[in-house]
Simulated assay, not measured.
Amino acid sequence: MTPATTTVGRPRTHRTGPLLLAVLLVAANLRLGVTSLGALLDQVHDATGMSAATASSLTSLPVLCFAVVGATGMALARRVGVHRGIAVAMALLAAGLGVRVLGASPLLVLGTLLACAGIALANVLLPAVVKEHFPDRVGAVTGAYSAVLSGGAALGAAATAPIADAAGSWRAGLGTWAVVAVAALVAWAPYCRDPDHTGRGQRGPSLWRSPTAWAVTVIFATQGIAAYVVMSWLPTVYVDAGFSHRESGLLLAVSILVGVPVFFVVPTIATRLRSQGHLLAGLSLLMGAGFLGLWLAPVGGAWLWAVILGVGGGIFPVVLTLFSLRAADSAATAALSAMGQSVGYLLAAGGPLGVGLLRDATGSWSLPLALLVGLMLVQIPIGYAAGRPVLVGAPRN
């Protein structure tokens, strides 16, 4: 057992094995609540009689919530500590997942808002826990929880409808995942007992004038645009190219699942490099190649482009790792994570909408895909700036 050290120099005595399990349980919840609703949105729409505007708002709430609520993550850490902050996040998530199946569309929207608020806070605070307790295994632990997060997203998308069909109710399909959130909260509870938690009472560094912090923030935004476009529009691109809905859904599933082992590996590679610029450039080129393939040969190379996009999506856990690698300590990690994710998700939120509007305006995927190729090329120099071995400042007491 290797004790971790707090930002004030006191030793930790938590066993890393159970703590790692708790981290992974929290990570498993960070997309379940989003993809599970997407899997049943048509059924929920028909059953509740919600308007088309309300249904559309449910698809945009997660990213907007990640941006707005994520910005409060550092303030929460200062008040209660990172560990109790994650407990608050899991409690909000469990409550939200329960509330959204209790009644008609107003409760569905309220529950979704609460659940996404919990996810947003955990998104921001989890990298600080990794920095604090696993300083010598940042890459491996970030890779593990990123892969579990991706697996949870796939599980929510794939299993929610069968559960609902078996139970004869969409409420059962969605409500099942509240149990997973409660399990994560129970697993996390032992780490809320020590009153001296990471970030409590500390003021994180001011990052708004840091070029490095902005480079990390911007690359989080650009990769987020690409990722949400893939999740939102990849099946439609394939349908428009002549594939069936079932084949198109399978191609998206392949893209997600291919990324899971990549998510495990690339953060560890990132931590072994002095500069992560070459790694970020390579992954950006892969994403660009995937979009270029979809533009020029969506039918002939369909499976290849899905795989390439899945591998290129490994840039997400690398950027999560940068929150730790570019920060001096765990409080600075929380501050950089809050800035990167709040601003990054806000910028990324318009990506899928803009791509859809361009496709409708031009009647073709050519211009949207060409712009995405260009975005991935622009991402390369940003990655070199974010990958430089520079630390943002330590927090002030």
Rank of each mutant, 00 (worst) to 15 (best):
A167Y: 01
V80F: 08
P261E: 12
V239H: 02
A89V: 04
S248V: 01
M1F: 07
W188H: 09
L30P: 12
L251H: 09
L251D: 02
A4H: 11
A53G: 14
A161W: 02
A157T: 07
S342A: 14
L24N: 07
A87S: 15
V34I: 15
A161D: 14
L185I: 02
S244Q: 09
G73N: 05
A104V: 02
H278L: 15
L41T: 08
L185N: 11
V311F: 00
S337Y: 00
L358F: 01
D240R: 11
V34A: 15
P317E: 03
S337D: 04
L21Q: 06
A172L: 12
L114I: 03
I308E: 09
S105A: 15
V229L: 09
N123P: 07
V26F: 06
G344N: 09
P3D: 02
G242V: 06
W303R: 15
V80L: 13
V237T: 09
V265Y: 00
R209F: 01
C116P: 14
T362V: 04
S330W: 02
L125F: 03
T160P: 10
V299Y: 03
V237L: 13
G81D: 08
T6C: 09
R171L: 06
P190N: 07
V258D: 04
D360L: 05
S255D: 05
L25T: 14
L391V: 01
G111F: 02
L336K: 11
L367A: 10
P381C: 12
L21I: 14
V216E: 04
V390D: 11
L371Y: 03
P135E: 03
S56H: 05
G314K: 09
P106H: 06
P18Q: 07
L280Y: 05
P106K: 14
R246I: 12
